[in-house]
Write a protein that binds this DNA or RNA. Structure first.
Length: 839
RNA sequence: GCGGACGUGGCGGAACGGUAGACGCUGGGGACUUAAAAUCCUUUUCCCGAUAGGGAGUGCGGGUUCAAAUCCCGCCGUCCGCACCA
């Protein structure tokens, strides 16, 4: 048999076969061990991109591999379908966000199916379906009733033109990313989830996530940002507006005698009190409030303060007075919104003190001997021993800190506390295309939950996007309702939930989807936690933290027994491509340019093009490659194979035409082997060993998600088979090769499997086993070194005695020449590996 | 500023402290062909050498070790995350 493997025929054929047989439907009642493999579900943006292909290919290999190993595998797919792009499309193209979203889902579903993923499509859902978000509303109410949801005024980035709240990352240089209008800081009543209640649990839980990347655990740890310290009160020298003290937090109580000032946030009650009496203070506060809350915004802002004239008394010395400033760098929502400044040992305080000519005192030193050294050009933040600190003098920093906390608690002016960087999760969005928050506002009864029998609260379809702002808010009837409690006139909450809520529990819904409640506990727990979760590192913090929180909240409510949703996590690298720029600096797409010798030219105009850096595929850089035409040209398996070869999965993968060509070549090589398995009588011992070693190595590589290594192993085996003479072993090796290739190139494997005359599908075949005896060779190649440098290699029987090895090595001509008659001082023998002769 | 990762041929990358460069891509040479495609063979870290062989070599400088890409110390560079966090 000859010819070529034709994916345009084979792909479709096997995809329908798997579909007809329900090969990948997950059976909850199966007796097999259960494995839940999940990739982060996609946002239906329009078309599949290479990043999706890479992500889902990796998950698919794991899913298929586990299935072959005899596991019952749950490998579902769905759509994270709410979000802003749909509304933007609605504004730009005058289509309803739902229509746009569902059309995208149809397109992308077809594209995914062309890749032949072993997915259980029966469980597919989209989060924008009331059948999903209705259950989410029920869960929200569960959290509400458990006291994990509250409403609070909070400061937000407000775009006055689009009339919406912007996330920090949507504020660019102080302006709204769409409207370009200067962003205002505004107070708005928002719904919050009490994630901070779980701060310690979420932090402690990280220690058990052994199969998570260290990097992600660290990022979460830093994000939660637990710090221990002292919270204490400064008494005001004179009460102002009924305020008699100011509360501060510090992680360095040991520096308490180094204090030179107190600074409060612009929103702090003391600041407001000062403003009442002093127009200068009021003006300063107004200045602080202008501008966005983004990180970039804050970074560039100059450190400024305003002396209020108010004074406080040092808690450890009634005679000691400190000035109170209003400062633009003090945050109202971290700690207490007030600090005491220790310029000698905090760089920011140091700069502030320089600017406002405040004392800079040394209270920490390397030793008491250098207590009188002045502080130099920057603050000394390292710990040491306390100096110039009265009763603390000579104590190491940590002991001094404990001593201050002890005294504060004893005297009642302060206490040891823990602060977190983590804030409660604000989930209100002033958008249409999201899950409506199931709350009704009544003038008499306040915020009342929507009764359960009225769920889901469904989004109205008749909305317009002609005017900016939230269409739900200006809908003629939707928000007008009766209060469920008193029957009086009331209005619906028109904010919708942050889309991160949708993705905080979808993995539970995949595992169990009863029509009448969010999930069935017993059913869900058959699958959960997810054994292997795969996605981009960009979700290392938010999504993964929110999902962990949501799972813990459900656990606290007694709804589920697990506390961690994802046992194994893998963050894959991006797909990148070279960028090209025309003379005028505009970006050109890969199919607009052509390589001409060593240079690149614009195909249309023939003008030279400057190749730029290799970067993540993005629309703005125009360096994307659409998977669909590639798929049409090379077939699913070549694309899948390329996604797995070369680059380690956690690193970036550079797309290249040559790479996909290489993958395609491999597909054809396997096909040729299966077309003519060249069987004959007799065994081929070396090939057999190679085969068994490969079975072992490939299994190990896939297990460790080292797909590039599995690929390399399979190339080697393929070459070995090609070079082998016909034998029974060779035929067996071809058959086994197909099994090994099956998780990665499933259509090819099926096609070849059938070619070998197999009746059943390879999808249902078992992963091959290996004989451990065959992994060990009878003969080994020993490296022979002189003074650590390789001088010769020699082949010897395994387990050769030390003395014999030494003799063999010394007999080597190269060794003799190196020794030049001298006798070796020492000979080191590593059995079956190496001899090192020290001359 | 804080935290982290990485640095190996022309390129992507392999390498329990033990033969550096597996495997793939690219390039060179060749076979088959009227020719091409496809395929196959061969070669490809650098330097000296016809070969045998020798020298250098894993960002830079030190160290530990019989032996270091790998462990330790100090630099340099690139990338990522966080950031007035008290």
């Amino acid at each position: 048999m000859s010819g070529r493997f034709d994916p345009s025929q084979a792909d479709r054929r096997w995809q329908s076969r798997w579909n007809e047989e329900g090969s990948f439907a997950a059976d909850s009642n199966s007796n097999k061990p259960k494995t839940y493999v999940l990739e982060m579900f996609p946002y239906p943006s329009g078309r599949i991109h290479m990043g999706h292909v890479r992500n889902y290919t990796m998950g698919d290999v794991i899913a298929r591999f586990r299935r072959m190993q005899g596991h019952e595998v749950l490998h579902p797919m769905g759509w994270d379908a709410f979000g802003m792009p749909a509304e933007n499309a609605a504004m730009e193209r005058k289509v309803h966000p739902g229509e746009w979203t569902w059309a995208n889902i149809r397109t992308m579903r077809e594209q995914l199916k062309q890749l032949g993923f072993a997915l259980d499509w029966e469980r597919e859902f989209a989060t924008c379906d009331p059948a999903y978000y209705g259950h989410e509303q029920a869960l929200f109410l569960d959290l509400f009733e458990a006291g994990l949801v509250y409403r609070k005024e909070s400061e937000v980035n407000w775009d006055p033109v689009d009339m919406t709240v912007l996330a920090n990352e949507q504020v660019i240089e102080g302006r709204g990313w769409r409207s370009g209008a200067p962003v205002e800081r505004r107070k708005l009543a928002q719904w919050f989830l009490k994630i901070t209640d779980f701060a310690d649990d979420l932090l402690d839980g990280l220690a058990d996530l052994k199969d998570w990347p260290e990097k992600v655990r660290l990022m979460q740890e830093n994000w939660i940002g637990r710090s221990k310290g002292l919270q204490f009160r400064f008494r005001l020298a004179e009460a102002v507006d009924g305020l008699s003290d100011v509360e501060v937090f510090t992680t360095r109580p040991d520096t308490i005698f180094g204090a030179s000032f107190v600074a409060v946030a612009a929103d702090h009650p003391i600041a407001r009190a000062a403003a009442n009496a002093d127009p200068g203070a009021a003006e300063f506060i107004a200045e602080c409030k202008a501008g966005g809350t983004s990180a970039a915004e804050i970074e560039t802002a100059e450190k400024k303060g305003y002396a209020t004239g108010i004074e406080v008394v040092h808690p450890l010395d009634p005679e000691w007075r400190l000035p109170v400033y209003i400062a633009n760098f003090v945050l109202m929502d971290y700690g207490t919104g007030a600090i005491f400044g220790v310029p000698g040992h905090d760089q920011r305080d140091f700069e502030f003190a320089k600017q406002y000519h405040l004392p800079i005192r040394r209270v920490v030193a390397a030793s008491t001997a250098v207590a009188s050294e002045p502080i130099g050009t920057e603050a000394e933040t390292a710990p040491g021993v306390a100096v110039n600190s009265r009763f603390l003098d000579g104590l190491p920093s940590d002991e001094a800190a404990s001593e201050v906390i002890r005294r504060a608690e004893q005297a009642g002016w302060g206490r040891g506390t823990v602060q977190y960087r983590l804030r409660d999760w604000g989930v209100s969005r002033q958008r249409y295309w999201g899950t409506p928050i199931p709350i009704i506002h009544c003038a008499n009864c306040g915020a009342v939950p929507v009764p359960r029998d009225q769920l889901p609260v469904v989004l109205p379809d008749d909305v317009d996007f002609e005017t900016p702002g939230n269409p739900l808010d200006r809908h003629p009837t939707w928000k007008t309702v009766e209060c469920p409690a008193c029957g009086g006139p009331a209005t619906r909450e028109t904010d919708t939930l942050d889309t991160f809520v949708d993705s905080s529990w979808y993995f539970i819904r995949f595992a169990s989807q009863p029509p009448d409640r969010p999930f069935d506990r017993t059913e869900a727990e058959k699958w959960l936690p997810v054994a292997q979760y795969i996605g981009g590192v960009e979700h290392a913090i938010l999504h993964l933290l929110y999902a962990r929180f949501w799972t813990r909240a459900l656990q606290r409510l007694g709804r589920i027994s697990i506390s961690e949703p994802f046992r194994g996590l893998f963050t894959q690298g991006m797909v990148t491509h070279e960028t090209y720029r025309a003379g005028d600096g505009s970006w050109l797409s890969p199919d607009e340019v052509r390589k001409d010798g060593d240079d690149w030219v614009h195909i249309e105009s023939g003008v030279p093009v400057t190749p730029g850096r290799v970067e993540k595929m993005s629309k703005s850089k125009r360096n994307t490659v659409d998977p669909e035409p590639i798929l049409a040209k090379y077939g699913a398996d070549a694309v899948r194979w390329f996604m797995l070869s070369d680059s380690p999965p956690e690193r970036d993968l550079e797309w290249s035409e040559a790479g996909i060509e290489g993958a395609s070549r491999f597909v054809q090589r396997v096909w040729r082997l299966a077309s003519d398995p060249k069987t004959a009588e007799g065994e081929d011992e070396p090939l057999k060993r190679k085969l068994h070693r490969t079975i072992s190595a490939v299994g190990e590589a896939i297990d460790g998600l080292q797909f590039n290594k599995a690929v390399a192993q399979l190339y080697e085996l393929t070459t070995a088979i090609e070079k082998a003479n016909p034998s029974q072993t060779r035929a067996e090796a071809v058959r086994t090769l197909l099994l090994l290739v099956a998780p990665m190139a499933p259509h090819l494997a099926e096609e070849c499997w059938a070619l070998l005359g197999e009746q059943s599908m390879i999808a249902d075949a078992s992963w091959p086993t290996f004989d451990p005896e065959l992994l060990i060779d009878d003969e080994v190649t020993l490296a022979v070194q002189v003074n650590g440098k390789l001088r010769d290699t020699l082949v010897a029987p395994r387990g050769l005695a030390r003395a014999d090895v030494e003799a063999l090595a010394l007999a080597s001509g190269n060794v003799q020449r190196q020794l030049a008659g001298a006798s070796p001082r020492k000979i080191i023998v590593v059995p079956d590996r190496l001899v090192n002769i020290v001359a």
